[in-house]
Design a protein around this nucleic acid. Structure first.
Lengths: 134, 134
DNA sequence: CTAATTGATACTATTTTAGTATCATTTAAA
DNA sequence: TTTAAATGATACTAAAATAGTATCAATTAG
């Protein structure tokens, strides 16, 4: 039962680094060196973030990525959505077929309420709130 | 991201059935017939519940299982724990190695708080609360 | 030109989840 | 006392999700 998978985790680390980095553009090479994330995996992650509008990419020599929005406007729920799909805790069970028995309906309802809470609390966390002010 | 896996789900259904069943002892055969759960999988689940003290088992012909506690004393968090281990949402990421960067520490803290909320809300749901009173 | 970069995409490996198979043991009832 | 129907124990397989790798094409600063 995990709220955050590895790719989301790496995405958060990379974005936090970029938010604190003075350079406008950060290359994969720099991130790999500083954060010790497997190169090809990180590339795939950054490409996804680019496609989803979180990052902008720059091709060619001295290319790389930069944040498209300010840290206070990037929510970790955005990142979770990119890598883990829509934020649903009860994904597996209820998705495939509607519940067959009454007790599952009641449970479904209760889990749904809890899910809403988690989503709204996660919704308050931004990248900016993770940075340490110095 | 799932709060409840298949085995926990089947466990809940089986236990709800047994809670409403007039018979004292319910056999796997009856549960398989009524709930359409794969036989061997269900057996494994019920055996685990027996070992963990949720059910009592009766061997031999006309044997089966029955609830060891009253429905209002069985929490679904108990069942989640049996099949999914201790209730931790941030399992994967922080378990293996301590977080390496400051931003992860902050996130860890925030996720921890959310986790606590989920756990305490799940902690309110009992098997009895899932049964429909008629 | 060329070396360093991202884009795209296909592939492999690992882990978790889901489910199956089988033999031994127990026991109610014919 | 035999037997059929049940659980105990355990090893195995299958499928899905997660994590990671490899490679070639296109772009671009110097």
């Amino acid at each position: 039962m995990k709220l955050i998978t590895r790719d989301t985790d790496y995405a958060i680390r990379a974005i936090c680094f970029m938010a604190e980095n003075k350079e406008e553009i950060t290359s994969v090479s720099e991130l790999v060196e500083k954060l010790k994330i497997p190169r090809q995996f990180l590339r795939k992650i950054l490409q996804a973030l680019n496609k989803k509008g979180v990052l902008t990419s720059f091709k060619g020599k001295s290319g790389g990525f930069k944040l498209r929005r300010k840290p206070q406007d990037i929510f970790i729920t955005d990142l979770i959505k990119v890598f883990q799909g829509p934020l649903k805790l009860n994904k597996c069970i209820f998705k495939k077929k509607l519940c067959s028995s009454v007790d599952r309906c009641i449970l479904r309802e209760k889990i749904g309420e809890i899910e809403q809470r988690v989503v709204s609390e996660l919704g308050l966390i931004t990248v900016a709130s993770l940075l340490n002010k110095r």
